[in-house]
C-alpha cells in the first residue's frame, strides 16, 4: 500500500487487452444475432424449436461476449471473477426458471386461457377473456 504504485499500464488487466479477441467477439455476436433474426423472420421452424434455437444462439452470443469481448479467464487476477460468475449464473436461472415454472402451473390450475401445459386439455375461451 505504501509501496509506490508501479506503472498502472503494466497491470495485467490492462495488458490483457487485445484487438483480435475484441473484433472476434464483436463480429461473432453480431452474426449470431443476425442469424437469430433471420430464423425468426423467416419462421424456419415451429415456434417451440425456434425459441429453443434462438435461446441457444443467445447463450453462444453471451459466451462470446464473456470470453472473447470481455476476455474472462482463470488467470490469477481473474479467477475470483470467474468463480463468482459461476456461482451467480445458477441464481439467474433459478430466479427466472422457477418463477416462470410456478406461474405456468398456477395458470394451468386456475384454468387461465392460453396456458395449455396439460397435454390433451383444450381450453375454451371463458368469461375471463
Amino acid at each position: 500500500m505504501s509501496a509506490p504504485d508501479p506503472d498502472p499500464l503494466h497491470h495485467p488487466e490492462v495488458q490483457e487487452a487485445g484487438i483480435i479477441g475484441y473484433t472476434a467477439g464483436f463480429l461473432a455476436t453480431l452474426v449470431l444475432l443476425g442469424v437469430a433474426l433471420l430464423m425468426t423472420e423467416l419462421h424456419v421452424m415451429p415456434p417451440g424449436p425456434l425459441l429453443g434455437s434462438i435461446s441457444g444462439l443467445a447463450i453462444i452470443a453471451l459466451l462470446c461476449q464473456t470470453f472473447l469481448s470481455f476476455g474472462l479467464d482463470i488467470t490469477r487476477h481473474n479467477i475470483w471473477k470467474s468463480v463468482s460468475l459461476v456461482l451467480t449464473v445458477p441464481l439467474f436461472i433459478l430466479t427466472i426458471g422457477l418463477t416462470v415454472w410456478m406461474f405456468q402451473q398456477l395458470d394451468a390450475l386456475t384454468m387461465i386461457p392460453g396456458s395449455n401445459i396439460m397435454p390433451g386439455m383444450t381450453m375454451q375461451p371463458t368469461m375471463l377473456q
Binding site: 437469430a36 419462421h43 453471451l62 461476449q65
Partner: peptide, 17 residues
C-alpha cells in the same frame, strides 16, 4: 451489451415467434 443480447432475443425476437 450482454443485457441487450438477452433483451433482443427474449423480448424482440420471442415476441414475433
Amino acid at each position: 451489451a450482454a443485457i441487450w443480447v438477452c433483451v433482443y432475443v427474449f423480448v424482440y425476437l420471442k415476441g414475433v415467434i
